[in-house]
Amino acid sequence: MIGAAAAAPTTNAELKQQVTDTERAFAATMKARDHAAFTSFLSDEAVFFSGPKQAQHGKGAVAQEWKRFYDKPEAPFSWEPDEVEVLASGTLAISGGPAYDPKGKLIARFSSIWRLEAPGKWRIVFNRGSDVCDCKNP
C-alpha cells in the first residue's frame, strides 16, 4: 500500500507527540540562532504577547520583534515544553513549559497555541510568556 507509512496520526497520543516534537524544533531555532527557521513555524495570523509591549499581530510583525533575540551569537534564553494537549478534533493544541536564562535559571513560563495548517504541519497562532516570580528577592 503506497503512502500508508505517511498516514496522518490517528490517536490523541500521536498528535500530542507531533506537537511536542514541533515545539522542540521551534525552540531549537533559538539555540541554532536561525531566525528564518523560527519564522517558518509562525502562522500568517500569529499573535505574540512579548513583555509589556502591545501584542504583535501577523507573521511579519512577530518575526520583526523576535529578530533581536537572534542577532547575538549567544541565545538570550531557551525553552522546552513540559505539557501538551490536543483537541479531540486534532486541529488545535496548546503547549507550555519553562523558559531559562543562559545559565539555566528558570525565568518564565510560556504557553503556545498551535493549529494544524496542513497534514503534519503545526504552526503557532498564539504565544504568551509570563515571568516567574523570584520570591526570595521581593
Rank of each mutant, 00 (worst) to 15 (best):
I94D: 14
A99S: 14
G104H: 02
V62P: 01
F49P: 09
A55W: 06
G60I: 15
Y100T: 08
R115S: 07
E45W: 11
F41E: 05
Y70F: 11
R68P: 09
P98N: 11
S78Y: 04
Q56H: 13
S43W: 09
D82T: 10
F41W: 01
K53I: 14
A93G: 03
E80G: 15
V47H: 05
G90T: 07
L92M: 14
F69G: 11
L87F: 15
P52C: 14
V62D: 03
L87I: 15
S43R: 05
P98V: 09
K53L: 12
S43C: 09
K53A: 12
P81M: 00
F110P: 11
Q64D: 07
W79E: 06
A63Q: 02
A88F: 14
E45P: 12
Q64E: 10
E45Q: 13
F48E: 03
F77Y: 10
P52N: 14
F69K: 10
D71V: 06
E65F: 13
D82E: 09
A88K: 12
E117K: 11
P52W: 14
T39G: 04
E83D: 14
D71N: 09
K103Y: 11
Q54D: 12
T39H: 07
A108T: 06
R115H: 13
W79T: 05
P102S: 00
V47R: 06
G60S: 13
D82M: 08
T91R: 15
S95P: 05
L87N: 15
V47I: 07
S89E: 03
W66Q: 09
P119G: 13
G60M: 13
L42S: 00
S43M: 11
V86D: 01
E117C: 10
I94M: 15
A118P: 01
A108Y: 05
E117G: 10
A63D: 02
V47G: 06
I113G: 03
I94E: 15
W66C: 11
D44R: 04
E117T: 12
V47D: 06
G90N: 04
G51M: 03
Y70W: 12
Q64P: 13
Q56C: 09
K53C: 12
G96R: 11
A118F: 05
V84S: 05
F41Y: 03
S78Q: 07
G58S: 01
S43H: 10
F69A: 12
Q54I: 08
E45K: 08
A55I: 06
L116G: 03
I94W: 15
G97H: 01
Q64M: 06
A75M: 12
F41R: 02
A46R: 03
D101P: 08
I94F: 15
P119T: 10
T91Q: 15
